[in-house]
Write a protein that binds this DNA or RNA. Structure first.
Lengths: 342, 342
DNA sequence: TTTTTTTACGCAATCGTTGCCGGTAACGAT
DNA sequence: ATCGTTACCGGCAACGATTGCGTAAAAAAA
């Protein structure tokens, strides 16, 4: 079952012209007479001719397609980012192919290989929490593949990056918990190898220091799979709740972790915020409906997607190799709700 | 800035063979000697050769790409469906291009034109709530473009379809509200032109009839934009709450509508389920955390995506035109929680 | 040894589009 | 009459991979 589109040759045959003339007429070349152009355009219009982008890609050695690698589409932050990416890409005639690693290094590698073999013109990447080995990305970067990182960036690769001020976001969240009266604040975050985990940990620590609270390793839990499975978070919670004195506040550093932690607290019938206050990174649009309504740090996800795409298109369409890369840092927003208000 | 991949010609030059021989060696043709194959394969392996899919597409007149049109990625139901679509597509060496209409007919048309001009091999579509004119889709279908509809299907086009049993889902939900003691049950649903809205309305009505409750038009509200903006839902709610006697139960027929309605009830400080019970279609993974925990009808979104893709691949890879189409109907699941338990 | 068959490879065309070169006709200038 | 210009258009080649056809050399059969 095939869907046959009409080609330049069809128009050439019908108009008794050569393919090259038709091509030029369609591209409004000055070498073609007005009359010929009229005939060709009329015919093309009638048959609803659309140039075959595959043939164009082959000829121009570019696909007008960008590849996106995120860990999970069904995650508010990333789906919002993707919206931003698509909006800019579409406006510039670019196509977007989305892949997800589901926090698996192996799947990420497969995605990258797939996308590059599919001849994408550039990549927008947020790495998985399993990704320690960045050699493939390095390789692609060196070979000239335009890459923009966002959110979970790879520090050692020098290219455009889009992030939020994770340090200050975490600082704000932690400070807010302190000001709400919490004395022992736990942090549950992603794998420590991730850039965002490092920055958020630093912000958390800085807020503690600032307010004269002693930092304790025992109150910081890392989730290697970033909350993909509940078990990981439950283990972390069990450990935290075993501490004496028990934490009276938890700062969670990702969407999934935040909701899993709240669920865990519900299951254990621990009152939020009365017994334990909760503040978390989350871009979900329904956290105001949670029980209790969640205090969250949100990221300008859509804007991040837009920005990353603009930067990528700059790279792709730059005539000469770019060596001057920038890291754009946007700001987070703290939305105070009940979960942090004992 | 260009990323140059290695081609068959590079291998040909290096091995002193012709491009055709290299091609045949790579495809393990019997016309090529074992020794030559070894040399070629070794070299290809060393340089990490990957055939250029664009060139292959041009030659084979297929892109191994499927286009997806949904109204919104950042919606649990659709993002889960997309996960299902991608999993099957990838396993079969197919690429997925996702587009969103955001409930706009115009954007949907643009998406369809874009995808077909991009030479996708087939389409998976869930139409927008604005879509009354299906002529473009009809046209594509007639011209031989393989199409599979899911969720919001187009009844008048005869092709494969994947849906859930919306009638019985709505029936269950409504009956559950009745059994929970509700006497006046309102329905807030999508634009009535949508297939799912019709089926869900019918299920709602059937449950009322079955239990001897009179149906009233005043208790049914349609949201043309399917809950894309809160205003639409607030208007519907104001109207419903103005009824006397006021509804004591609401059945909401989509993800977005459900959360907007709950938010509206919160704002109006109406106790759920005490004053008004709430049951809604939702595939969000956090409705158990809502205040109160939501009773929901969930759909097997991932499976729907998988199934739709399998059906589409059947169409695409079928040698002869397919005339025998099927409509696969999966079942919904009612998850009872607090919001319906006065 | 001669003829036939088999093996193993190259040539050229193809997919749709476009850049480059070349060619022709018309026209004015010399 | 000859040359140069300009306007307009066609042919060829190429992008990378694939394939039908042709053919030299090697092997087998006569």
């Amino acid at each position: 079952m095939k869907f046959e589109a009409i080609t330049i040759k069809d128009i050439a045959k019908a108009t008794q012209l050569s393919a090259s003339t038709v091509s030029r007429a369609l591209r409004d070349s000055s070498e073609i007479s007005v009359e010929t152009k009229r005939i060709v355009l009329e015919y093309a219009e009638k048959l609803n001719y659309k140039p075959n982008p595959i043939a164009q890609s082959l000829k121009e050695r570019r696909s007008r397609t960008i590849g996106v690698v995120v860990c999970e589409i069904a995650n508010s932050f990333f789906s919002q980012t993707i919206n931003g990416i698509e909006s800019i890409a579409w406006n510039n005639g670019y196509n977007v192919i989305i892949t997800q690693s589901r926090e698996s290094f192996e799947r990420e590698q497969l995605s990258l290989r797939y996308l590059t073999s599919r001849s994408v013109d550039g990549l927008i990447v947020s790495v998985s929490s399993e990704t320690k080995d960045t050699s493939l990305l390095q390789d692609l970067h060196i070979k000239g593949m335009p890459i923009v990182f966002f959110d979970r960036i790879v520090e050692e690769i020098n290219t455009h990056k889009v992030i939020v001020d994770n340090f200050s976001g975490a600082y704000q969240a932690t400070e807010h918990l302190i000001k709400s009266g919490c004395k022992r604040i736990a942090l549950i975050t992603n794998d420590p190898s991730l850039s965002i985990a490092k920055d958020r940990l630093a912000g958390y620590q800085a807020a503690l220091v600032k307010h004269g609270i002693e930092y304790s390793d025992a109150l910081v839990k890392y989730c290697e799979q970033g909350g993909m499975n509940a078990a990981e978070i439950n283990t972390a919670m069990d450990s935290l709740l075993g501490e004496t004195p028990r934490p009276d506040g938890i700062f969670t550093a990702s969407d999934k972790i935040t909701s899993h932690v709240l669920r865990n607290l519900h299951e254990k019938k621990i009152a939020v915020p009365k017994e334990i206050a909760l503040v978390g990174f989350s871009n979900s649009e329904v956290t105001d409906l949670f029980s209790p309504a969640l205090t969250v740090i949100t990221q300008p996800a859509f804007e991040m997607g837009e920005l990353a795409t603009k930067l990528l298109l700059n790279l792709i369409e730059s005539k000469r190799p770019v060596t001057d890369f920038e890291t754009q840092m946007l700001t987070t927003k703290l939305i105070v709700r009940k979960s942090s208000n004992p």
